[in-house]
Structure formats: structure tokens, C-alpha cells
């Protein structure tokens, strides 16, 4: 328990936006997309209202990729994972806590930023509610995909980042299909499926990530 609390405290200190090391970039990126989109497609309120929810989703997906390169690689290279292993701390525990901190650093801030983004795109209250519900259901899954990919690309050094971005996109498609798809069907069944996919990914991530870190050590 003391180990978990110590790990979480350090992870939050390095990942939370505005703190040392953490960055506001994903949030600003998200808001920039929402701000620039109306300029790009023109000020047609109906078009904006119809497509705005989807744009928020795509922006959220891309914002989730931005911090991937500092999620695990720097700790791996500076020997933290070796030292944790020497203390008998499982990689799975470290990854699970990193996953929680990663989600906290972009999930809730993104849900907050979706409020001004919805205003900029002229979304109505009902659509906004589905977007927010969908983000709540989908962002843990995005965080889990992110951490799995960060772990899988550990052995690739600098070339890993380009690959990481490419790998994330097909894996994120199911989340996007159901999460953003709920906007057009109007019900919450899509959100529920999105949440189910998220739960599976979150359950898998610590084990996949832990195995990937151990494999990277051998390379």
C-alpha cells in the first residue's frame, strides 16, 4: 500500500498538467482543434452541430497520443523499472498505477475542456451530455491503449514514437465507433459498449504492459 501510494504520488507529479514535467499541450491541442474547426468548414450552425461531437472525439483521441513518449520510456532508460524489480515490485502494479495517473492527467481535464469546445461548435445540451458520457466511458480505454503501446515500443528507442502513433489509431477505432457513434443513434447503448471495451482494455493493460517491459529488458 505504501509502495502504491508512493508510486501514484510521483506519477501524478510528473503527469498532471501544470505540474513539473506535466504539460498543458494535450488540452491546448484539444481546444485549438475545436476553435479552428468552424473556421475550416465555415459558419454553418447546422453542419457544426451535426459534426461537432465527432470532432471533439477525434481531438480527444489525438490529445491522448501526445504524452505517450514520456509515459514509460524515460523511467525505463533511467533504470527505475530495474530498481522496482530489485525490490520485488511487479511491473503490473507500476503499469496499473501509471495508467490511473495517465487517465487522471488527460481524461477529466478533457471532459472539462469539452464544455467550452461544445460552446464553440454550437452543440446542444443533449449532444453535449452524450459527448461527456462517451468521454467518461472512452477515455480510460484510450489511456489503456496508450500505455500498452508505450510499453510495446520501449525497445525501439527513438523510432518508437512514430510507430506508437500509428499503432494507436487502429486500436482506438472500436472506441471511436461506439463512443462517437452514439451521437448519431442518439441512445446510450453505444456509450455502454464503449464503456465495455474500455473496461476490457483497462483490465488487459497492466498485464500486457508488464510483459512488454520485461521483454524490452532482454533486448
Amino acid at each position: 500500500m505504501r509502495v502504491a501510494a508512493t508510486l501514484l504520488r510521483r506519477d501524478l507529479a510528473t503527469l498532471l498538467p501544470g505540474r513539473q514535467g506535466g504539460t498543458l499541450l494535450p488540452l491546448l491541442f484539444f481546444l485549438a482543434v475545436a476553435m479552428l474547426y468552424p473556421f475550416a468548414v465555415g459558419p454553418d450552425p447546422q453542419l457544426l452541430a451535426r459534426t461537432g461531437g465527432g470532432v471533439i472525439w477525434v481531438a480527444a483521441l489525438l490529445a491522448a497520443i501526445l504524452p505517450l513518449d514520456r509515459l514509460l520510456a524515460s523511467d525505463f532508460q533511467s533504470g527505475f523499472f530495474d530498481q522496482w524489480a530489485m525490490r520485488g515490485i511487479a511491473e503490473e502494479l507500476v503499469v496499473a498505477i501509471r495508467l490511473l495517473a495517465h487517465w487522471l492527467s488527460f481524461g477529466p481535464p478533457l471532459m472539462l475542456a469539452a464544455l467550452p469546445a461544445a460552446a464553440l461548435l454550437g452543440l446542444d445540451g443533449r449532444t453535449l451530455a452524450i459527448v461527456e458520457l462517451g468521454l467518461l466511458a472512452g477515455t480510460p480505454g484510450l489511456a489503456a491503449i496508450g500505455i500498452i503501446i508505450a510499453a510495446l515500443t520501449l525497445g525501439l528507442r527513438s523510432a518508437g514514437m512514430a510507430l506508437a502513433g500509428l499503432l494507436l489509431i487502429p486500436l482506438a477505432v472500436p472506441l471511436l465507433v461506439f463512443g462517437a457513434g452514439a451521437l448519431s443513434t442518439g441512445g446510450t447503448s453505444g456509450v455502454a459498449l464503449c464503456g465495455a471495451i474500455s473496461l476490457v482494455l483497462v483490465a488487459l493493460a497492466p498485464f500486457a504492459g508488464g510483459a512488454a517491459i520485461r521483454a524490452a529488458r532482454e533486448s
Binding site: 505504501r2 533511467s78 530489485m86 525490490r87
Partner: peptide, 24 residues
């Protein structure tokens, strides 16, 4: 294990970086 990897946060003051391992 003591090896070439320091396993201390580079941007933090030494005290805070060591405090992480002290808490652990």
C-alpha cells in the same frame, strides 16, 4: 543493484529525488 542508471528524477532537487526512494 547499483549500475550506470541513476534512477533519480533528473529535474528534481537531489533531496526530493532521493525522498521518493526513501518513502519506498
Amino acid at each position: 543493484l547499483l549500475d550506470g542508471a541513476l534512477a533519480l528524477d533528473e529535474h528534481q532537487p537531489l533531496d526530493a529525488a532521493l525522498a521518493f526512494w526513501r518513502r519506498m
